[in-house]
Design a protein around this nucleic acid. Structure first.
Lengths: 190, 190
DNA sequence: AAAATTATGTGTACTTAGTAAACACTTTCC
DNA sequence: GGAAAGTGTTTACTAAGTACACATAATTTT
């Protein structure tokens, strides 16, 4: 067993995160992680109930990253900047993004309260932002718009991840910095 | 080996489709399928290179279903009705929908030309519909709008699949029939 | 501090699932 | 009518998740 500062649990998360960022969740297998951590195949089970537990930790970390990104931009009620962060995250961490927002997630949120909270907070932040943009509209109209913004952002991430854009990621990122907010404004508030 | 009219290949597809519709792709495993078909575990490999081949067939079938749905409504260039079909499909066949549009698809489209064609046709149908709606705009603007519509529709499917709506699916379907086109009009062309 | 409990890691082994390889029979085609 | 191709079986390998029994170290309890 290698000698490290952090707990094995922390190391495992770190290793899994790296694999997931660089490759994908499918490439994270416990034997591989264990080997990288320098422990036995099953040491893992002392810290996680099962593999999905680990997935949940990575997802939570993803939400925290998006959230931190939003804070950095000092987003306040500006849901446009909020959406922009979302998109940046989707481009920068595509595999974590998939983990979090792919339809094929077999994670039962109710089993992971922190995760559920983070996910809900994330959405209600958006709703608040939208509401402050259209303060005279009904709750229903605000919700509809919020969902629409959300869908827009998801759609955009999907588009920007297509190979045409990924071939030179640097330019894509530049495009985002220069045009993203304008784009979101147009597609969401005409 | 049971005695049937269709080829084993057709039967396998049928069985897999049913499992996938009722449960999910993750629940389709070749041993189970083989057992239901009344053949040995590996007979499957005489008809498919691997499991992904079968997945591709199911996806293609999904595209055909959406397409057929569009024909029935006599959709023409009306991309609103087109989007509505998309949503209906997403609600009626959620697991097939995931298979087709979930981010976590490990299908390499270029390996399945029919599938690529179907998928592209599906999108260019939408683009055409949008174009006829805004004939004086640039190619770029049309594409941007098309992607936005697409994203909207995806977003809506996601929303309608949340538990609040799924609890009484019948009402959801009714809602779709009554309000969907209006909703799409508002969210996409303000 | 001795005893009991809990935490952390190991080794072994079971299970599920995808699939390769060798064999056999049957149909097709020159 | 024999070669080739098609279809199915058996057997077995591999990867990956995880349960279980054991060991030892750390912590808590009395």
């Amino acid at each position: 067993m290698a000698d490290h500062k952090e707990s094995l649990k922390e190391r495992i998360v770190e290793i899994a995160w790296k694999i997931c960022v660089a490759e994908s969740w499918q490439k994270v297998n416990m034997r591989r992680v264990a080997q990288k951590a320098g422990v036995s195949n099953t040491a893992f089970y002392r810290h996680f109930k099962n593999k999905n537990d680990l997935k949940a930790v990575l997802m939570l970390r993803g939400f925290q990253l998006i959230y931190k990104g939003s804070k950095n931009v000092n987003v306040g009620n500006n849901f446009i900047a909020y959406g922009a962060n979302y998109v940046r995250f989707g481009i920068e961490y595509p595999h974590i993004y998939d983990l979090m927002f792919g339809h094929t997630t077999d994670i039962d949120m109710s089993l992971y309260p922190d995760l559920e909270v983070a996910s809900n907070e994330s959405f209600s932040g958006l709703v608040e932002g939208v509401k402050s943009f259209m303060p005279n509209n009904s709750e229903n109209e605000v919700m509809r718009k919020a969902y629409n913004v959300w869908a827009s952002v998801h759609g955009l991430v999907g588009i920007l991840r297509r190979s045409e854009w990924q071939e030179n990621k640097t330019e894509t990122l530049e495009w985002i910095e220069n045009n993203l907010e304008e784009y979101l404004k147009i597609t969401t508030f005409g």
